[in-house]
Amino acid sequence: MTEEIIIAGFGGQGVLSMGKILAYSGIMQDQEVSWMPSYGPEMRGGTANVTVILSDDRISSPVLKKFDTAIILNQQSMDKFESDIKPGGTLLYDPNGITRHPERDDINIYKIPGAALAAEMGNPKTFNMIILGGFLNVKPIVKIENVKKGLEKSLPERHHKLIPLNIEAIQKGIDSVETVVAL
């Protein structure tokens, strides 16, 4: 198994930390992982993206042009990455703020109202974990128990009290995915 993922959105949406938690979850499941962020001008405001690879084998390039899955969280990222998904691959997106919806018919497309659900939960910071839950519904490549271990590893101890809330958000995400196109 090798899963090549791009997560892209605005800085501040938790794109990089979502990728980190996913990567740590992979380690807890004995997978090889890489996490390659956009750094530099992007991190000083505007868009942020991270390439995360989970694999049972040694990972070759951490920098990719084509992806198995794209998790898209704003319009700019939709414009940039929709065409970079491999045929037969997967696009998961939050329709919040999306004005031009995806048009491809050779990929699986799912949407998840992450921003709306986070507002419902009364905590916008749960947004990225709701999205992660949505991804794990569509691509259950890591077990929830390993995601929990990944959270324990990647969050400093003083934040461990937030883990149950994060797990709740992930569960909400798992339960809230809507299929747009299934091949």
């Binding site: 980190k20 990567a23 090889e32 890489s34 996490w35 390659m36 962020p37 750094y39 951490p62 920098v63």
Partner: peptide, 8 residues
Amino acid sequence: VIGQMMEK
């Protein structure tokens, strides 16, 4: 690339 990337 190697400096900013995270791996196991």
